[in-house]
């Protein structure tokens, strides 16, 4: 009897370790780096880490809805980049000689945010409609949108970087409450995380989303409007990419068509590390936060270890491949 209990406990522990092996590995790496380089835990580094994590968390939590319904969104990074360009164009200083739109009046930052979110919502609604009504695989539909949005961004900015942004806009990134670690960006990400947690766990939308991810046909039979839910998921996701791009422009003090390049893959990687199954139906907001945080810790730890920049891509790529291999292993072991 005791041996059976012991066996089940050891099985539980090995499953827990297997499920969180990447998180555990990077936690150990962070501990080692903080011992070797004590300023790894310094205030400025923590602030930098939280700022980067906050922006990537917002985009990742958007992508998570698509992943949970067995989809994906490859347009995330480009939509965020386009949003950053739009925000930067509308929020350039009026006394700047080379303004993109010379006659544009100084718009309130909040109004610009609403415009950016509205444009991104339209992009997301198109993505969602193509996936839901025309049954185009999300991979293909969003790949097409990625290229299209990149093209629109190139044309609208003339492939020029946009700078000289208004101070009240960049304060969004530099401002903080009390301690510099509690930056506005971190607080915005916290608000987004809380909203998404309520949406995923306490509201009908979240229940529909998990039901579709678990078994789309059963969800449809149960009376869930699958198509409408998918359109809502992709629209909300694109609005979050828009918010991410808006904050990124404020943080960088400018934007270009290459802003947020590759963020969609980092977001998918963060989600996968954080336990969002690419098989659908599984994923928690807290897991996504941990996944993104772990990925950022990995990047900063590599910088502190003095890893040559050429090698950082190899290491990041390997971590993503290992995360996918572990996800595949879970799937094969379950079969």
């Amino acid at each position: 009897m005791q041996s059976v209990a012991k066996e089940s406990t050891s099985k539980k522990i090995s499953k827990l370790l297997m499920d969180n092996v990447i998180i555990l590995g990077i936690f150990i790496l962070a501990v080692v780096v903080s011992i070797l380089r004590p300023n790894f835990l310094g205030e400025s580094n923590i602030r930098n880490l939280l700022g980067n994590t906050a922006i990537r968390f917002i985009i990742a939590v958007g992508v998570s809805g698509c992943l949970i319904t067995k989809g994906t969104d490859l347009s995330a990074g480009r939509v965020a980049g386009f949003a950053a360009c739009m925000a930067a164009i509308m929020l350039q200083r009026s006394d700047y000689v080379n303004r993109m739109i010379p006659g544009l009046p100084e718009l309130p930052v909040f109004v610009v945010l609403l415009v950016v979110l509205a444009v991104c919502a339209v992009i997301g609604a198109i993505n969602g409609s193509v996936v839901a009504f025309f049954k185009v695989p999300p991979f293909i539909a969003t790949l097409g949108m990625q290229t299209l949005v990149y093209g629109i961004a190139l044309v609208s900015t003339g492939a020029q970087p946009i700078g000289s942004l208004r101070r009240e806009f960049t304060t969004l990134a530099t401002g903080y409450i009390g301690n510099p670690i509690v930056s506005y960006i971190a607080l915005i990400a916290l608000a987004v995380g809380t909203f998404m947690w309520v949406l995923y766990n306490k509201m009908r939308h979240g229940k529909y989303m998990y039901a579709i991810g678990g078994n789309e046909a059963a969800a449809e039979v149960a009376g869930i409007n699958v198509n409408r839910t998918k359109v809502r998921i992709y629209t909300l996701a694109a609005m979050l990419y828009g918010l991410c791009g808006f904050l990124l422009a404020a943080k960088s003090g400018g934007a270009s068509v290459n802003t947020a390049m590759g963020y969609e893959l980092e977001a998918i990687a963060g989600c996968t590390i954080g336990g969002v199954s690419v098989n659908g139906g599984v994923g928690k907001v807290s897991g996504i936060l941990i996944g993104v945080l772990v990925f950022e810790v990995l990047k900063i730890a590599m910088q502190f270890m003095g890893l040559k920049s050429d090698y950082t891509y190899i290491v990041q790529g390997l971590v993503i491949i290992i995360a996918v291999a572990l996800d595949l292993r879970k799937y094969l072991a379950k079969k």
Partner: peptide
């Protein structure tokens, strides 16, 4: 109704590796 398989699930189904072989690949990675 039977669960519908997603794009990645269908991709994973094409993988004909035994778990031990995947473990070796993960170890190499």
């Amino acid at each position: 109704p039977e669960p519908q398989k997603g794009f990645k699930e269908r991709m994973y189904d094409k993988v004909k590796l035994p778990v031990w072989a995947l473990d070796i690949i993960i170890a190499v990675l």
